[in-house]
Computed example of a mutant assay.
Amino acid sequence: MGPIFKDRHDAAQRLAPRIKAALRAGEKPIILALPRGGVPLAAVIATQLDAPLDLVLVRKLGLPSQPELAVGAVTDGAQPNLEINAEVAQAAGLSDADIAALAEPALAEIARRRALWLGGRSPLGLSGKVAVVVDDGIATGASMRAALRWLRTQGAVRVIVAIPVAPATALSTITALADQLICLETPHPFRAVGAHYTDFPQVSDAEVSAALRAQDQGPRHRPP
């Protein structure tokens, strides 16, 4: 099976009408990207929905011997949420303490990225809001699960996950944590997320910062 999407912009264009259809009358969502790959999609969707854009700062914890394989993920915050892929951890012989140790440099990297991408920009308040969480795809789902658990602690009243592509096996746990899941394609066999795009470049720090600045300077108003 060849690539499904031309690039992230193409995927966002296909997701946007599905998200619009999922919103209830009068709902004013906040679009939240999982950086960095989710930011280009979320920026397009935020513009089309005339909605504010923000980030969920989450960091995948790769196996030391295989960094692309997530043994878990951790989110930013006063009480960071650590999500563990139990099967991967068990196969690798890693204890909870081992994974907590892996999270320490990840949290330091999240802090660095917060300063770089957001500067002094305050996060949008999520209490009582509808949150639409966007990424360019899901592989194991660890980062998304960590993001969704964190969102619940922030008081979001409804959480919609919107992704272009994922393996069907990863979606059951996502469905359990979200109020609604929009996934355009579940190819089988599933390869790496980028294999389902014709053009899938790395998203730079500068692109993330620029996307946030562009949304802040646009005609929409940030919610109180």
Rank of each mutant, 00 (worst) to 15 (best):
M1N: 13
I4E: 11
D10L: 14
A12F: 11
R14T: 10
P17G: 12
P17L: 12
G26S: 09
E27R: 12
L32M: 14
G37P: 00
G37R: 09
L41C: 10
A42P: 00
A43R: 10
A43K: 15
I45A: 13
I45E: 12
T47S: 14
L49Q: 07
L49N: 09
P52G: 07
V56T: 14
L57C: 01
R59W: 00
K60C: 05
L61H: 02
P64A: 01
V71R: 04
G72Q: 04
T75C: 08
T75S: 12
G77M: 12
A78H: 10
Q79S: 13
P80L: 12
E87M: 11
V88H: 05
V88S: 04
Q90N: 08
A91R: 13
A92D: 06
D96Y: 02
I99P: 01
L102I: 07
L102M: 11
A103M: 05
E104S: 09
P105D: 12
P105E: 11
A106E: 09
A106N: 13
I110F: 08
A111Y: 04
R113Y: 00
L116V: 04
L116E: 13
L116M: 08
L116D: 09
L116C: 00
L118P: 02
R121L: 13
R121S: 06
P123M: 14
P123Y: 13
L124V: 06
L126I: 03
V132E: 05
V133M: 10
A142L: 00
L148V: 03
W150R: 14
W150L: 13
L151P: 01
R152M: 07
T153E: 05
T153N: 01
T153L: 04
Q154S: 03
G155T: 10
V157Q: 07
I163V: 15
I163M: 02
V165S: 00
A170I: 01
S172G: 00
T175P: 00
A178F: 01
Q180V: 02
T186E: 11
P189T: 11
G194Y: 11
G194F: 05
H196L: 08
H196C: 03
Y197D: 01
F200R: 09
S204I: 03
D205G: 04
A206V: 13
E207Q: 15
E207M: 12
V208I: 14
S209D: 03
Q217C: 01
P224L: 13
